[in-house]
Every structure is written in structure tokens, then in C-alpha cells.
Amino acid sequence: MADGRLRLTIYFTGALIAILLLIHLSLFSFWFVEGGYYTNMEWENVSARMGNILWDTFYIILLSAVLLHSYSGIKGIAYEYITSSGGRRLIDVLLTLIWLIAFVYGVLPIISG
């Protein structure tokens, strides 16, 4: 079980994701958007969203929250099985590296306009 700061991070980002994800998913729903998934996968619509500063901000916040949430969760699980300080340092470095690459890779299509 993750402790202290890690658990608070998981709870805070989790609550944020619950709200943002509903907005993200509703864009692809046939209930709310004519053509639902298909409309929103069209190049013009994706580009229009990515060219909008508000949507860019929304997606960067969502991406950051989801990555931070998953990072904290996986780290919490890994810490249960790796108890040595050296092993935990290695896990920290590895996870930070992987998640940073994922963040950069995720942010680029958002800010590329």
C-alpha cells in the first residue's frame, strides 16, 4: 500500500481524472456528438481541437494527471516488492525516465497545433 505523499497524489489526481475523463469520453459518445467516435477521429476535428489553446490546456492537464496517477500507483506496487534502498532508487530512476518519455511523446502532438 502506497503511503503518505504517494497516496495523496493518487487520490488528488484520481479525483481530477474522474472529472476530466468524463469530458474526454463524452466527445466520442454518440449520445452527445453527431457521429460520435467517427466524427472525433476525423483529421479536421482532431486538428481543430489541438489548435485551440483551451483544448491544449485541457489535454495537457489530463495527460499530466493520468501519468502522475499511474506513476504513483505503479511505484507504490513496486515498492511493496522491492524493499532495498538501492532497488527502490533504481525503480525511481527507471519509472521517472519511462514516464518522462511518455509525457514528452504525449505532449508533442498536443502542442504541435
Binding site: W43, V46, S47, M50, L63, V66, L67, S70, G73, I74, I77, A102, Y105, G106, L108, P109, S112
Partner: peptide, 25 residues
């Protein structure tokens, strides 16, 4: 949680295809 984390990485990869232009997307 672990499953969704794996999906997240696939989703990031899939979404990044937009960077390579209309044809790739």
C-alpha cells in the same frame, strides 16, 4: 490499474501518429 497503464502508453503512441500528418493519422 495496471491494465489501464498499459493502455495509456498505447493510447499515447496512437495519438502521437497525428504528428506525422494526415496520411499517417
Amino acid at each position: 490499474g495496471i491494465g489501464l497503464t498499459l493502455y495509456l502508453f498505447i493510447h499515447i503512441y496512437e495519438t502521437s501518429m497525428r504528428m506525422y500528418g494526415y496520411e499517417t493519422w
